[in-house]
Nucleic acid binder design. Structure first.
Lengths: 330, 330
DNA sequence: CTGAAAGCGCTTACAG
DNA sequence: CTGAAAGCGCTTACAG
């Protein structure tokens, strides 16, 4: 690959001048600019980004760490993140944390080693404390998705889990359901815990006793929704509605109800969270709470861009609310 | 952030020595190794990857370009790619080509500028020629997913589209279907074309006349499957089976049939391609052809790793075959 | 076993 | 307007 030195030789100028025309900085006589351009052109020269990053002490890249690449969900997130980054002329470096806190920390470190200008972190396994420790240890700014970390002086954007859950549960309550089962996400995860707690709280507020047997812990996937629902059915507990903590599990649950000969919504209503496209193409169509993942991602990326430019952005957490989407399953 | 110079000062040794202990190269007295380690430890020193890459002329990174982040499909691909890369101690840099050939070429260029050691390209919009031109222009080796490029002296791994389609169509034929409709992927895409051609060929081989009205062009998404199937229904053409070129569209089609009061599979059979998890959780369960995306990705990444290490790998295309998965929809 | 020096490909004051 | 020189943070022959 040709280097700046090759361009210098061909154009008969110094590196300083070539650098000036590459970056459009400083003054360069029009005629010499042309000579340099021609040289770059004929050599098919492109500057080495690594060398630029080293010299500039900025790499023009945004590191993105995802806990997993599961679900439709992350596709939307990635697409939005990639778009924003591209439109801002920055590279997006995506890493999979594999839902393991050690690997996620390792991922952060390696992005720092690569001198990313900012890191966007969507972690399920890191605790609040882990994240705060991380940010104090490294100098690269972190934008956290899906955690409420405002008070810690960090930059974050999150989804109001409690509000979303309330929307779902209150909808079921209004439909007259009293015995509402809950298929949770992993209770190791922050989101899983918050949604489950909000479920319990919503019942309490409606003066409904909480039956521990109506909670089954899932893991977010279709198969888990199916299996948990089966457990619920064979447990003998009575329930007339299921709150699945995400759409995939809700779809799995509907299938299990169908296989057990239980009609949805007549004999059992089902509601999820996420508003995945899929929900509209199953029978019956799934009621859910919309999670505005594009908007959330967009907000996080805007913060990230500002931080990458070194702008002093105010720390704090930007919170997004869900919206109830009622379809045929409730 | 501390640099190697800081470590030198603290440890009282030269950069060469620190570099040796970082990399475990050359001879270093045990006692001085210890001193250096302690210095690195207490400074929380980590080498700057950019500087290392510049000095070594290799960046320890694999560039991955995806045409889009749509569908469940890409999640599996990304997960597998990230795993292989991580286990090999390499960074994966993921870029979205946004299904636009110019953007995809731009993406390749920027990965080259970043001095990725190898590029894995999963493109829908680049033509065969585009890719070959690209590889002749740049010196970074490219591994192509989902194209048969063996004869061009490139490295590629692909899926036997024709065989997969035959499996699906022959299955329908065996079930006694004669009028088989086809909901295609975008016919701008290589995959879309191949599957559609294979559909036609399979019919011809069975001495069945091809009715152009039984082909509707979709775009791979659930909504498109639904819409195309509706068109088919209202067209008045008669058909007893639908071959949808991917599972998402098959699911959409099944929903459309249901909404039109057409029973699956009694009145109309439906089969897809991909074997997405989703297919097992809809009613009726979807027959499909399994596309071994993990295995494909794994193979591509192994090629990439070998190329990144500078090993002379034999060029050519490694081809994967699908497997018929019969469920209730046919 | 260890260090001085040159080099990787850029950028940026500083002189002129 | 342009160039010589130092610097970004590493690595690696080459001497010793």
């Amino acid at each position: 690959m040709p280097t700046i030195t090759d361009v210098c030789k061909l154009a008969g100028v110094s590196k300083a001048t070539v650098s000036r025309v590459i970056n459009g900085t400083g003054q360069v006589k029009e005629s010499t600019r042309k000579v340099v351009f021609d040289a770059m052109e004929s050599l098919q020269y492109r500057p080495n980004s690594l060398a630029q990053a080293l010299a500039n002490n900025k790499s023009n890249s945004i590191g993105l760490i995802l806990s997993t690449f599961d679900g439709n969900y992350f596709g939307s997130l990635l697409r939005e993140a990639a778009n924003v980054a591209h439109d801002a002329g920055m590279q997006l470096i995506v890493t999979d944390g594999r839902n393991d806190s050690n690997l996620e920390i390792e991922a952060v470190n390696s992005l720092v080693d690569r001198r990313c200008d900012v890191i966007v972190l969507y972690s399920r396994s890191l605790t609040q404390k882990d994240i705060i420790d991380l940010q104090t240890r490294i100098s690269v700014p972190i934008v956290v998705i899906n955690r409420d970390l405002g008070e810690a002086g960090l930059h974050a954007v999150c989804f109001d889990q409690q509000f979303a859950t309330q929307l779902a549960i209150n909808h079921l309550l209004q439909k007259g359901h009293q015995n509402i089962a809950c298929i949770t996400l992993s209770l190791q995860s922050e989101t899983g815990l918050l949604r489950h707690q909000a479920y319990q709280q919503a019942l309490l507020e409606a003066d409904i006793a909480i039956s521990p047997n109506l909670t089954i812990e899932g893991d977010s996937r279709l198969a888990s929704g199916y299996a948990c629902c089966q457990k619920l059915i064979t447990s003998g507990e009575s329930f007339s509605a299921i709150f699945a903590c995400n759409d995939d599990m809700a779809v799995g649950a509907i299938k299990a109800l169908h296989d057990a000969g239980i009609k949805v919504p007549e004999q059992c209503a089902v509601i999820g969270i996420d508003n995945e496209p899929l929900g509209q193409y199953i029978e019956p169509q799934l009621s859910t709470v919309e999670l505005p993942i594009e908007a959330i991602t967009h907000a996080a990326m805007q913060m990230a861009l500002a931080l990458a430019k070194g702008l002093e952005t105010l720390t704090g957490t930007q919170e997004f609310k869900g919206k109830l989407v009622v379809r045929a399953s409730t």
